[in-house]
Design a protein around this nucleic acid. Structure first.
Length: 493
RNA sequence: GGCGGCAUAGCCAAGUGGUAAGGCAGCGGUCUGCAAAACCGUUAUUCUCCGGUUCGAAUCCGGAUGCCGCCUCCA
């Protein structure tokens, strides 16, 4: 089945055909490094991480470029506020970005170029635009002339006249059109500056992406992505600059992910409801955060709340419990049978077929504009079937039974890898979660174990009232006991 | 003011013409000393509302209402 992608440029789902068969060149706008990363950045990074992993799973050779904007007004402002060099600020937040993304299991991009390493490339692009009369100099500044690019507005669906009418920005009288934007900015004394044909200055915001994408991926590449808020003006301006300079189409497919909300409010600095990745990772397992981010379609809005993330936690735990149960059974596996060459009976056949079908259904969902929510639904389906199979199968030592479980485990591992979930050892995951929750609740393990010992004594004497009382006490503190056939285990709710 | 998006059970969520995936929570059952976990069964005759197209619509078209985003830095 063919992969179809919703293209923001045409506003339709299109069959994905790369320029070079088997090869995908993709550029995603990264972050401006002046502050800590929040859940919005996490969503963008995780969404494109899954897209890259899926494309690679489908056999594409993917070159993924994600930039760092390490020179910008906000960085300079932050440096002044904190009384530090702007480079120190940028460097610190690049490190922070990597720490956060590593924490979330987001793979590094193939190339992570920095704007300040490409000043000369940008100057070259700007000169090209001036020569072609798409840009003009005004004192030490250079502006892009939007009137010279007929396609201006094709991505955001805006018309020049309407934009002009609604322009709220204070108009710079040197601009030929109020919507003309800076390619190069003259620097004020004390500001970071580079030599250029127009004097000392620094690049405008949009030009770095045009210069760096063409340098690493060519004038035309396959996929360009980023957050929805970048559609206008950033991506619109990028298209204008690049296409005016080269006369070629910049990118063939545009992918934009939706926003993250916190309790139905858009996350924003002014509302003070920024939820940083560091905070999230302190409270939740990285895979819980990932599952939360991909349980919803990437284009829609995503509302974060305690209730919803706790539901996600329960859902992921369900997966891991199934996998743990498989692991526990698999201890007895002596030789794994080739299931496609073994005669399987009713239930065995049914579950085997279901497990075999799972990747097909998964890919079918992912091929439809990366429908991760549906893909995960199929995985839950299979997990339930596996649980049932384990519950009902009469001989738990049987090698057919165990071989089927092993096969199921492999299928889950394969698909989980694409999504970046279920990559921990089940026992380890469950233990990590318990430790994490105990840390948040501030409870001591030995105390719990002593209580359990005390209760088991009571149980042996069939003193149920006392046993129940101990259990209730622990339950009140968030510790839930589970009496198994061998021993009593506990978990944190 | 201009442009665009969304509206599916108690909650989250998939579903773009063929008769409502999945998760959480709830309820009944199996199991258990009782629980928990797991399993089985169950929970929307209906997809914000009103019209229209069609043999057939949550899905397409028109209108209404509500919520939201972009137009200014933002993933």
């Amino acid at each position: 089945m063919a992969l179809r992608i919703y293209n923001s440029l045409t506003k339709t789902k299109e069959v994905f055909t790369p320029i070079i068969p088997g090869k995908v060149n993709m550029y995603v706008c990264g972050v401006t490094v002046y502050d800590r990363c929040h859940m919005g950045h996490a969503r963008c990074a995780v969404v494109f991480d899954v897209i890259v992993k899926y494309l690679r799973h489908k056999g594409y050779d993917v070159t993924y470029v994600r930039n760092f904007t390490d020179i910008d007004d906000k960085i300079i402002k932050r440096a002044n506020e904190e009384g530090e060099n702007w480079q120190v600020i940028a460097e610190r937040h690049i490190k922070g970005f990597h720490r956060d993304m590593d924490g979330l299991g987001v793979e590094r991009a193939t190339i992570e170029p920095r704007a300040t390493d490409h000043i000369q490339d940008m100057i070259n692009t700007i000169q090209k635009l001036i020569h072609k009369d798409h840009a003009y100099q005004a004192d030490g500044d250079v502006f892009f002339a939007v009137n010279t690019f007929p396609g201006y507005g094709k991505l955001s669906g805006k018309k020049l006249e309407e934009l002009e009418a609604g322009a709220r920005v204070q108009v710079d009288t040197r601009k030929r059109n109020p919507l003309d934007f800076s390619l190069w900015k003259e620097s004020k004394p004390g500001e970071p500056a580079w030599e250029s044909p127009w004097g000392k200055g620094r690049p405008g915001w949009h030009i770095e992406c045009s210069a760096m994408s063409s340098k690493y991926l060519g004038d035309t590449f396959d996929i360009h992505g980023g957050g929805q808020d970048l559609i206008f003006p950033h991506h619109e301006n990028e298209i204008a600059q690049s296409e005016a300079a080269t006369g070629k189409v910049l990118a063939r497919y545009w992918i934009h992910n939706g926003f993250v909300y916190i309790n139905k409010e858009k996350m924003s600095k002014s509302l003070g409801n920024i939820f940083t990745i560091q905070e999230a990772l302190r409270i939740y397992h990285p895979e819980v955060i990932r599952l939360f981010l991909i349980s919803h379609h990437y284009r829609g809005p995503l509302d974060f709340s305690d209730v919803i993330i706790n539901e996600t936690e329960a859902a992921l735990e369900r997966f891991y419990k199934t996998l743990k149960a498989i692991d526990d059974s698999l201890v007895g596996l002596k030789e794994e049978l080739p299931l496609d060459r073994v005669e399987l009976k009713g239930d065995e056949r049914e579950i085997y077929e279901k497990l075999k079908e799972l990747p097909v259904k998964f890919e079918c969902a992912m091929d439809d504009d990366f429908n991760t929510a549906l893909a995960i639904g199929h995985m839950f389906d299979a997990a339930r079937a596996l649980n049932r199979f384990m519950d009902l199968y009469p001989q738990k030592e049987d090698s057919i039974f165990l071989s089927i479980l092993s096969y199921g485990k492999k299928q889950f591992g394969k698909l989980g890898h694409i999504l970046g979930i279920l990559v921990s050892e089940p026992a380890q995951y469950l233990e990590d979660q318990r430790a994490r929750k105990l840390r948040l609740l501030n409870i001591d393990v030995s105390e719990i174990e002593a209580k359990i010992e005390e209760r088991n004594l009571a149980r042996r004497e069939k003193d149920w009232a006392r046993a129940d009382k101990i259990r209730a006490e622990l339950a009140k503190r968030g510790i839930l006991l589970e009496d198994g056939p061998e021993k009593t285990t506990w978990r944190v709710v």
